[in-house]
Amino acid sequence: MPDRVPPADGVSPAADGVPTGGPDRAPAVVDGVAHVPERVSAVPDRSTLRLALVVGGLVLAVLLGFGLGRLDGGGPSAAAGAESALSGHSHAPGTGAHEHGADQGAAAQAGGLSVSSAGYTLAPLAATFTAGRPGELRFQVRDAQRRPVTRFAVVHDKPMHLIVVRRDLTGYQHLHPTMAADGTWSVPLTLPQAGVWRAYADFTALADDGRQTAVTLGVDLTAPGVYRPRQLPTPASSAMVDGFAVGYQGTPQAGLTVPLTFRFDSPAGRPALERHLGAYGHLVALREGDLGYLHVHPEPQPVDGAVTFWVTTPDPGRYRLFLDFQVAGVVRTAEFTLDVP
């Protein structure tokens, strides 16, 4: 490249065509008018620095908030679907009964009371069974356009949790259907006694744009015959199942998030709890009368063999608690009756 030859008048042209002075800042003369260039500092002034820091902080806050929301499965859809995982968050040691914000309070309403919610509908292909005879429950989850939904998030190791119980809160079953390519779910099901049964589909649907919506839908199943409803056992904080003594400490209160700590014992000593569906226990609470559904997961780790669940009961009433736990590869269910003042 040839050497650049300076203009004869000693003035260097700027990028925008306006001449500037040389290193000694000699004035440049254009059309008889002298132009003295301003000295430009390489160090930005304080106002520029403050503006850069503010903008950078805002960008960082947005990025951090987005990342945390992704970790929590966050966003409005996740909050709206919290009915299927109430109190599914950890609390610092020593935390007592407390209230949550308005969003959490709204999400703490019992689910499973409707066949349709949040744009999704539970559609059983048949709802009548023969009492005591093995059968199969087949159903679809359909969107607002009545199309079968085929994309679901895996939550606690399964894309679909199905709870079945008779309307007198007996005969509890926790099942996991499988889905065909056309969005039809199926699972073997036996309704051991005549009566009206309630089936809850607890799932998180995935929209085409990636949004997740957690929903619990409920539908009645019937087993024709003579129905003899049973009275609930009296409230108690301890229960026996297959030789295991299970008891809890804590007093739920309507509208508050309260810890219930469950302890396990057996003639051979404290049993070694195992993970079942990704957690050290699964707690379902059903409200007597309307069979409102609460599904609560525990703290990540047991403490001294005890498992703590943070339970939010939205309203006073009598509830039936069903606690699934696993020892030596076998899943058992302890049941409790609870009165919430």
Rank of each mutant, 00 (worst) to 15 (best):
T337L: 03
V155A: 15
D103G: 07
P192M: 08
E38W: 11
S238Q: 14
L68G: 07
V149F: 05
A207E: 15
V226R: 12
V215M: 06
V215W: 03
L294Q: 14
R332Q: 06
T178L: 14
F203V: 13
L162N: 01
G281H: 07
V241W: 03
A108L: 05
H295A: 15
V307Y: 03
F264T: 05
E335D: 04
G17R: 11
A214M: 12
S237H: 13
E335P: 00
R146C: 06
D103P: 00
T257Q: 09
R142A: 07
L125G: 03
V33I: 14
G111S: 01
L338A: 04
Q173C: 02
T313L: 13
R332D: 02
S77M: 14
G81T: 00
A34Y: 04
V307L: 08
L323H: 09
D143C: 03
M1R: 15
P298L: 13
V11W: 15
T170F: 11
E83I: 10
G255D: 10
R287L: 00
F203Q: 11
P37M: 10
P124H: 05
H276E: 15
F129V: 00
G101N: 10
G317D: 03
M240I: 02
R39I: 11
Q140C: 06
V330P: 04
P252W: 02
V5Y: 07
M1V: 14
G94S: 09
T216D: 04
G278D: 05
H176Y: 10
L256A: 12
T251W: 08
R50Q: 12
A254K: 10
A334Y: 00
A107E: 02
R39F: 09
R332V: 03
Q104H: 01
V330Y: 05
A199I: 04
V36H: 12
T204V: 15
G305S: 08
G56N: 08
A180Y: 00
P316G: 04
G135M: 01
V115Q: 13
G74W: 00
G67V: 09
P7G: 15
D103C: 02
A199Q: 03
S238H: 10
A26K: 14
G171S: 13
G17T: 06
Q140P: 06
S238W: 06
P13L: 15
P37W: 08
T222R: 12
V165G: 02
L283D: 10
Q231W: 01
R275G: 06
L125A: 12
G112R: 00
P159N: 13
V165F: 01
R198E: 05
P93L: 11
D324Y: 08
A28C: 04
A78W: 10
D143H: 04
R228T: 11
T251P: 04
L221F: 00
G255K: 07
P93M: 11
V54H: 07
A34G: 09
L221T: 02
G225R: 02
E136Y: 01
L122G: 02
G289T: 03
F66M: 15
L217D: 02
D304C: 10
V164E: 02
